[in-house]
Every structure is written in C-alpha cells, then in structure tokens.
C-alpha cells in the first residue's frame, strides 16, 4: 500500500470528547467537544496534536516517541486505558471519550501525576544487585554479564515494560489502595528476581511479601489485557505469590 493511499483512505470527520481540567480557571473538570478530520492512519495522538495545533492550543497532554516505546501518552479511551500513539480512530465509531488515566491525581487536562507509580517502581530495587562480585580492573575476575539464551528467556517477557502505567489505571486494587505496589512494579521485581546475574531477591522479597505487595492482588487480570507490550503483569504477580509463599516458609524454618 503506498503512503498516498493510506493518507487518503476513508477520510471522514470524527467527534472527540475530551475531559478538560484547567485548575487555574476552575476547580471543576468539564467535557469539551472537538470535530476533526481523520483518515485510516490517524492515531489518537495525531488527533490530539491536530487539536492542539489547529483548534485549541490550551489542551495539555503528554507524548514523546509516538511509537509505543516511551510510555508517556497513556489516556482513557471510552473508559479503557490506552496508549494514544497505538490507538487508531478508525477502530472507533460514534462518540470517542478521552479522559486522563484513572487512579492517578490529575494535574491538568490529560496530564496525571505519576509520582506514586515511580515510588513503587523504585521500592522494588529494579536493578541488578551484586551482579559482579569482582572488584573493578581485577585481572582474575570472572567474565561478567554472561547469560545463556535460556537464562535470558526466563525473564525476557517481563523486561518489556515501558512504564506507561496503563496497568495501574486498569487495576481496581490500586484504585482502592494506592499503597499497593501494583502490576508493573511487582512485575519488574519478578523480572530481576528471575535474572541469573542478580542476587537481590532477598531484599525484594521483603517488599513483595507485604499486604501492599503481591498479597493485595486478587487476580483480576485486566492489567494483562490493557498492557500494550504484552508483558502479562498478572502472571508475574501470581508467580510472585508463589515466590513470596516459599520465602515465608523458608523464613519460618530458619526462625
């Protein structure tokens, strides 16, 4: 298909309702309607850019990469968390309702405050711990960072997270209790626990085996449905429950 064909295919006018919140003007949020030309290749992010450039420069939203890798363009589309750049208006009929991501404090229009999510990510120590026991420049040191394809395969899927936070908007338990570490943080913990180079599992288990760790999850599974990178956080959290149970048993026997 040539680019020209894509661009001119099925050009039509679509209706977008955007939930606006401008704290400088009013403490209340309100719905604003926009009509805009779209075709088969128009993503929701393209549409928001069109609004900002052509119709209403006061609209605020986040984006950067426009290719589903930076994770900054998450919004609710008809109540479902989606990446704006990976969502195409051709897939929607009728009114399309755009809101900021659920369960996060709204700062302005579609921009939310993700601080608590970042705190939860940091809490699980998402980095290799004691991966290299050798001192720097030690000539007798073993070769570091060696990993077989099988060892890589154990955690690879869980390493694809782009920290978009869609799974937090999908998670009713995070909605009820923001102290819950949540899908992505628990998945990241599991990803490092499964990494053959890592030795930090014990430290992470102390975080995971709390009420606000894996045990707040009730296996709703919506996180895995909305994840744009097929990370399957629900599977990771439930494997984390098995690990936390083992950790507790071991702790009991060791006293």
């Amino acid at each position: 298909m040539s680019t020209e064909q894509v661009n001119t295919n099925n050009t039509s006018t679509k209706h977008l309702s955007v939930k606006r919140y401008l704290p400088d003007n009013s403490a209340e949020s309100y719905w604003q309607e926009y009509e805009l030309p779209v075709d088969d290749s128009t993503s929701l992010l393209d549409a928001l850019n069109h609004i900002k450039e052509q119709l209403d420069s006061t609209l605020s939203y986040r984006w950067s990469c426009r290719m589903a890798i930076c994770g900054s363009c998450g919004v609710m589309v008809n109540g479902i968390p989606k990446l704006g750049c990976k969502t195409f208006l051709r897939d929607y009929e009728g009114d399309i309702r755009i809101e900021p991501l659920s369960h996060f404090p709204v700062q302005r229009d579609l921009v939310v405050d993700m601080a608590i999510f970042l705190e939860h990510l940091a809490a699980v120590k998402p980095y290799l711990i004691d991966d290299n026991p050798a001192k720097p420049y030690d000539p007798t040191a073993p070769e570091t960072y060696q990993q077989s394809p099988e060892q890589l395969a154990r955690y690879k899927q869980f390493a694809n997270c782009i920290n978009c936070g869609l799974c937090y908007s999908a998670c009713p338990q995070f909605g009820l209790n923001p102290e819950f570490l949540g899908p992505a943080a628990l998945t990241l913990a599991h990803r490092y626990n499964l990494d053959s180079r890592d030795h930090g599992k014990k430290q992470r288990m102390a975080e995971l085996n709390r009420h606000e760790g894996v045990w707040s999850c009730t296996f709703v599974g919506f996180c895995s449905k909305v994840c744009p990178k097929n990370v399957d956080p629900a599977a990771a959290v439930n494997q984390g429950k098995v690990e936390a149970a083992k950790h507790t048993l071991i702790a009991l026997f060791k006293g």
């Binding site: 705190e119 940091a122 809490a123 430290q203 102390a206 975080e207 085996n209 709390r210 009420h211 760790g213 045990w215 429950k241 936390a244 149970a245 507790t248 048993l249 702790a251 009991l252």
Partner: peptide, 23 residues
C-alpha cells in the same frame, strides 16, 4: 515511601499469614 525505611521496619510489616490463606 518505603524505599527510605530501614530493613527491620519492612520486616515488621511482613505479611506472614497471607501465604497460608492464599495456600
């Protein structure tokens, strides 16, 4: 913010009963 809490405080909040209920 949990990351600033010392290890013993985390230990204190461990959910030792949950694995049993979940099992």
């Amino acid at each position: 913010m949990n990351k600033h809490k010392p290890q013993h405080e985390l230990q204190h909040k461990q959910a030792f009963d949950e694995p049993l209920w979940w099992g």
